[in-house]
Amino acid sequence: MSIRSPAAFVTASAPGKVILVGEHAINRGQPALSVSIGLYARCRVAPLKTHQFRLHSGKERATVGHEDLTALRQWVERQRAAEAYSEIQALAARDYFAPAKYILALMLEHGLPTGLSIAWASEIPTSSGLGSGGAAFTALVAAAGALLPEPPRLEQCAAWAHCGDIIAHGGIASALDTQTSLLGGVLRVTSHGLAQHVPAAPGLALIVGNTGVIAATSAVNGRVRRWLSEAPDSRMAYFQTIGTLARLALPLLEAGAWQPLGHLLNLNQLILEKIGVSCPEIDQLIAAALGAGACGAKLSGSGGGGIIIALVLPEQRQDVAAAIAAAGGSALMPAINVPGVTIQKQPSSLRRINQ
Rank of each mutant, 00 (worst) to 15 (best):
H197D: 08
H197F: 06
H197R: 14
V198D: 04
V198R: 01
P199I: 07
P199H: 10
P199W: 09
P199T: 05
A200C: 15
A200T: 06
A200I: 14
A200F: 05
A201L: 05
P202N: 08
G203K: 05
G203I: 12
G203H: 11
L204S: 05
L204V: 02
L204D: 01
A205C: 13
A205R: 15
A205I: 07
A205Q: 14
L206Y: 00
L206P: 02
L206R: 00
I207E: 00
I207A: 07
I207N: 00
V208D: 04
V208E: 02
V208L: 08
V208F: 02
G209E: 01
G209W: 01
G209A: 05
N210V: 02
N210W: 12
N210F: 00
N210R: 06
T211P: 01
G212I: 08
V213L: 05
V213I: 14
I214D: 09
A215V: 03
A215H: 03
A215C: 04
A215L: 06
A216R: 13
A216V: 06
T217Q: 09
T217H: 08
S218I: 04
A219T: 14
A219N: 13
V220I: 15
V220G: 01
N221H: 13
N221E: 01
N221W: 01
G222T: 13
G222C: 12
R223K: 12
V224H: 04
V224A: 02
R225I: 05
R225W: 07
R226M: 14
R226E: 15
R226Y: 08
R226A: 15
W227P: 02
L228F: 07
S229H: 09
S229E: 15
S229P: 06
E230S: 12
E230Q: 14
E230C: 10
A231T: 06
A231H: 01
P232V: 08
P232L: 08
P232I: 04
P232R: 12
D233E: 15
D233N: 14
D233I: 11
D233P: 00
D233A: 14
S234R: 11
S234A: 12
S234M: 13
S234E: 15
R235G: 03
M236Y: 08
